[in-house]
């Protein structure tokens, strides 16, 4: 995202310019909604989280420090909202800490749509903290630094979590014989 554009638009929105607020919604509704969707999988939940994210952001614009990137700030709100929703529905989570069986299944090297589906399923099987780093890196294409700002974690922790998350996904896909 263009940070200068954001800075100006956020300033205008803070000043009460409704068109500027709308511009921010147009600019960020897609990444925010998609990040929420990947974290939650349910489109209705993702819509609710996206809506809450924007309303919280606009309600707290006075607290936003413009020396930070606006998108890091709004993504942080979105991730927190999604985590809160998941926390309130513990049963939604399918967390499993067991080691994966690395033996390749009979249908190794599945192509295209099937592999994509398997990845989406596997994503929902790993812990939400792991899923969050995958979403920030591979869906929102954030740098380690931006991920660290969003998650309020040191870059080193972000990296090791990302590496672990990818390993877990690979293990899940190996179990299914889809990679």
């Amino acid at each position: 995202m263009n940070e200068d554009d954001d800075r100006i638009t956020v300033h205008r929105c803070r000043e009460g310019d409704r068109a500027a607020c709308e511009q921010l919604v147009v600019r960020y509704q897609r990444p925010v909604f998609n990040a929420a969707l990947r974290l939650l999988r349910n489109p209705e939940d993702a819509k609710d989280v996206a809506q809450t994210t924007f309303l919280k952001a606009f309600g707290h614009l006075a607290d936003y420090d413009p020396s930070f990137k606006f998108y890091s700030w709004i993504y942080r709100i979105a991730v927190n909202e999604a985590l809160t929703l998941l926390g309130s529905r513990k049963s939604f989570e399918k967390i499993s800490g067991e080691e994966a069986d690395e033996a390749p299944g009979p249908e190794r090297q599945v192509e295209g749509e099937q592999l994509r589906q398997a990845i989406e399923d596997a994503l929902m099987e790993i812990k939400v903290e792991m899923r969050a780093v995958i979403v920030l890196r591979h869906l929102l294409h954030l740098s380690y630094k931006d991920m660290s700002d969003v998650l309020k974690l040191p870059e080193k922790t972000v990296k090791s979590r990302l590496y672990e998350a990818r390993q877990l996904l690979r293990d899940r896909l190996l179990q299914r014989g889809t990679i």
């Binding site: 998609n34 996206a50 809506q51 990845i119 869906l139 996904l169 990679i179």
Partner: peptide, 23 residues
């Protein structure tokens, strides 16, 4: 291969009412 596929996961268009509801 996994990372290439993750980067290429399709994005979904947000529902039209999302923007309306927020505004």
């Amino acid at each position: 291969r996994l990372c290439t596929e993750l980067d290429a996961l399709p994005e979904v268009e947000p529902p039209a009412q999302l923007r309306r509801n927020i505004l």
